[in-house]
């Protein structure tokens, strides 16, 4: 059983998935931040592979990616940073990036490396479902990788069913028609969409992401899905202060644990 499937079999609600960009704010922060997040109580970590042209991301994540690239982050460096991570933590780790990065590394080589270091799944927003189904589905299986696809408020019912069919681990439910990092309250229309999808009885758990930045957003997401994904808000925290203490405070704040002053 994959670490993600295992997690969701034990815990179906209040899942907190934290995104951060590998190699940010400092090149060698990757492992430290993973361990700090695990200790603070995050359930899943989505590790961003920094990209020059991140089409689905807003300025916060794009800037963190540019900084990570300036720091010298490369896929070979990242895999090297992760080579002992599985001796230290069993938290589910998912890589997020753009399909061109995988293509240039060599698809099969990339999947093999992921398995070797203990990556559990991939989020590649611009890998089309049908291309995945035709060319890569079997390879994901071979290398024990979960295929996590996105659905958005614009996705029709047939499309959502197809996403569910081809996804394993969980479905990334994009909260709003937007890129990452959009801020603001969750609207009635979004709630309607969350409820409608909830009624569809999909086989995969769902995590809601994009624009979730605080305790309130997290609770709302947890009411309508299995949990939430927080990215830009955490990057802003890292930018301000990336220490382990502040990371812990951030996670407690999101979960609503009372802080001991």
């Amino acid at each position: 059983m994959s670490r993600l499937t295992d997690l969701f079999s034990k815990k179906q609600s209040d899942i907190l998935n934290i995104y951060f960009t590998a190699g940010y704010p400092k090149l060698d922060d990757t492992e430290r931040i993973i361990l700090a997040l695990d200790k603070a109580g995050a359930d899943v970590i989505e590790l961003g592979m920094p990209y020059s042209d991140p089409m689905a991301d807003g300025p916060t994540i794009q800037e963190s990616g540019s900084q990570a690239l300036k720091n010298g982050m490369k896929l070979a460096v990242l895999f090297d940073q992760l080579k002992d991570v599985r001796t230290k933590t069993q938290i589910p780790l998912v890589l997020m990036g753009y399909f061109n990065q995988v293509m240039q590394f060599g698809e099969e080589q990339f999947f093999a490396k992921c398995m070797e270091v203990g990556i559990d799944g991939l989020i590649l927003p611009d890998l089309p479902l049908e291309v995945f189904a035709r060319e890569y589905k079997d390879m994901y299986k071979k290398y024990s990788l979960d295929s996590i696809f996105l659905m958005s408020p614009q996705s029709g019912e047939q499309r959502i069913k197809r996403v569910d069919e081809l996804s394993t681990g969980f479905i990334y439910m994009v909260a709003d028609a937007s890129i990452t990092g959009k801020q603001g309250e969750i609207t009635k229309k979004q709630i309607e969409y969350f409820e409608n999808v909830d009624k569809m009885g999909l086989k995969n758990p769902r995590l809601i992401g994009f624009g979730i930045s605080d305790h309130q957003g997290y609770t709302t997401a947890c009411n309508y899905a299995n949990g939430a994904i927080i990215g830009s808000a955490f990057i802003r925290q890292l930018k301000q202060n990336p220490s382990n203490e502040r990371i812990t405070d951030f996670i407690y704040g999101i979960k609503g644990h009372h802080l001991i002053a």
Binding site: P125, Q154, S155, R159, V174
Partner: peptide, 12 residues
């Protein structure tokens, strides 16, 4: 060619 776009753009 093809259309390598994120799901949010798929309907458009």
């Amino acid at each position: 060619g093809g259309a390598f776009v994120p799901e949010m753009l798929y309907p458009n």
